Computed example of a mutant assay.
Amino acid sequence: MITYSAIAVGTDGSESSQAAVRAAASLARLYDAKLVIISAWHAASSPLLNAPHRDLSSVPVSEEEAADQHLRDAMIVAQQEGAASIELRKVAGAPADALTREVQESGIDLLVVGNKGVNTLTGRVFGNIPTEVVRNSPVNVLIVNTDDHES
């Protein structure tokens, strides 16, 4: 029987990431597992070489204060879903790297992410967080279909 004692989920404050938090919190409740909510932050953008459009030319910036707010909002969602043990972590770095690094260092059994960017041309060409997480995660990854929650 598969069981999970620690489930992690990433949030960037978007509606789609809140849907992933809701799914992870539900699983944490069902498995009586600790829920670790992670928000990555980084203060500097880095240009992508030869990016054809301005909107593709840098990594999105999420300030540290914004990450704090994302975590507070996600905690409310997780509590509404009935997760009993919730831990909030603000991690410096690019989202996919921060998530996989935190999972490796923290004994997480399952990582939950939304599918934001998976079905877009930009995501297919330049990569996206869910794909990078799946490639690099040392644990099982659950990708939540958040298409109805895109923002």
Results as ranks from 00 to 15, higher is better:
H53C: 13
S39W: 04
A74C: 11
E63V: 00
S26A: 06
I86W: 08
L71Q: 05
R101M: 00
G93W: 02
S5H: 10
A40D: 00
Q18L: 15
E63C: 01
N128G: 03
V133Q: 07
Q69N: 06
Q104F: 01
H53F: 15
L71P: 13
N128V: 05
D73M: 02
S106Y: 02
I38F: 06
E65V: 09
S58P: 06
V113D: 01
T11I: 09
H149V: 10
V141A: 13
N136W: 04
I7P: 10
V112H: 09
R124H: 05
Q79R: 09
K90R: 08
V59K: 06
T120C: 05
E15W: 03
I38Q: 05
V103Q: 12
Y31D: 14
L56I: 10
V9S: 01
G127H: 00
N119C: 04
L142N: 14
A98N: 02
A78V: 01
G10K: 05
D109N: 04
Q79V: 06
D32M: 15
T100P: 11
K90Q: 07
S58R: 08
L30C: 12
D147V: 03
A25C: 07
T120W: 03
L49I: 15
V141H: 13
G10D: 03
G107A: 10
E15T: 05
K34F: 07
L88S: 09
G10W: 00
V112Q: 10
A6L: 12
V139N: 12
Q80N: 08
S17Q: 07
L88Q: 08
S58M: 11
A67Y: 02
A66Q: 08
A44R: 13
V134L: 09
D12M: 15
S85T: 04
R29Q: 15
A98P: 02
A83Q: 00
I38H: 09
I86E: 11
